[in-house]
Design a protein around this nucleic acid. Structure first.
Lengths: 155, 155
DNA sequence: GTCGTATAAATCGTACACGATAGGATCGCA
DNA sequence: TGCGATCCTATCGTGTACGATTTATACGAC
């Protein structure tokens, strides 16, 4: 009920949604150059991270972890396949599934990446405690938004 | 120097960059449906917000506020023009500039939007103090990232 | 006044995001 | 055993995002 509860906020930079949006873009900018040296985009890097943790995942399993669907992942995975970092094969047990596996080169990439993660970790400029707290708040914010979006929109 | 300082994090969901990224997507999902009723996408909505605050801005001024460049904004503004919400006219004083102005219909849209902002504000589930603190932390995070990206990347 | 430089917007190519839909495989159950 | 519902991936269309380049205008030093 305060003075700005309804009127348009004075600046987009005073909106939480815009701050989150632009901070995501800023992360992207920081990651772009070092990843480019490895031949990866940021979304491709996220897929590689996922496979370095658990290899041989289906498209859907990767999508669960990254919160995206096959319409985004299929072309992205084909590019990673074209780059020689993963293979895509139909599962014999369930022909509906496509299993994505790291190649030797894909596994090798993991070492080159350690420095990328490390250098970004420093630029965020937060100590362990603040980082953990910030992450927890953002996660809970995201969960609230997800829950709101999941409600069948009234009408 | 702790145990996870170098190895790949166990899950993308434990990375700050991914949390920010996916929270931005979650905001987008929440906004999508109500904005769709107005005929706007989320980035278009950000442009409208900017113009509701300051009308008659050049493409570059809009870009300063939204942190994007003409390569993204030009086609987006042409769509808003096609929808009848803005006009785009070359400035007489400086023929390089294109000035974007709200139409009557574009101004009218502002009222329909109040409820959108209000309903999203509730779903974030934070009180005034927490919201302000979270926003300040994210802003400072973004500034750190911007500063890092601005450094001419060594080698 | 002329020329080089800076600035503003537009254009181009590639990659993501995402709603909607299609097509094939699997499963459950009558 | 057959058949409808469900699941999984792929495809399509539209709308961003963004680096690199292009074109046109403005400005400053001379």
């Amino acid at each position: 009920m305060d003075s700005r509860s309804d009127a348009s906020p004075s600046r987009v930079d005073d909106l939480l949604c815009f701050l989150v949006h632009s901070t995501g873009a800023a992360f992207n900018r920081v990651y772009r150059k070092p990843l480019e040296r490895l031949g990866l985009t940021y979304p491709q890097y996220l897929v590689m991270l996922t496979l370095w943790t658990d290899d041989a995942l289906s498209v859907g399993q990767i999508g669960d972890r990254l919160r995206q669907d096959s319409n985004t992942l299929t072309p992205l995975l084909k590019r990673l396949e074209g780059l020689g970092f993963v293979t895509r094969t139909r599962s014999a047990a369930d022909e509906r599934r496509v299993v994505v596996r790291l190649t030797a080169e894909g596994r090798r990439l993991r070492e080159s990446v350690a420095e990328v993660v490390g250098c970004v970790r420093e630029t965020v400029g937060l100590d362990e405690g603040d980082l953990a707290q910030l992450m927890e708040r953002i996660r809970s914010l995201r969960d609230n938004l997800d829950a709101a979006a999941a409600m069948t929109p009234p009408r």
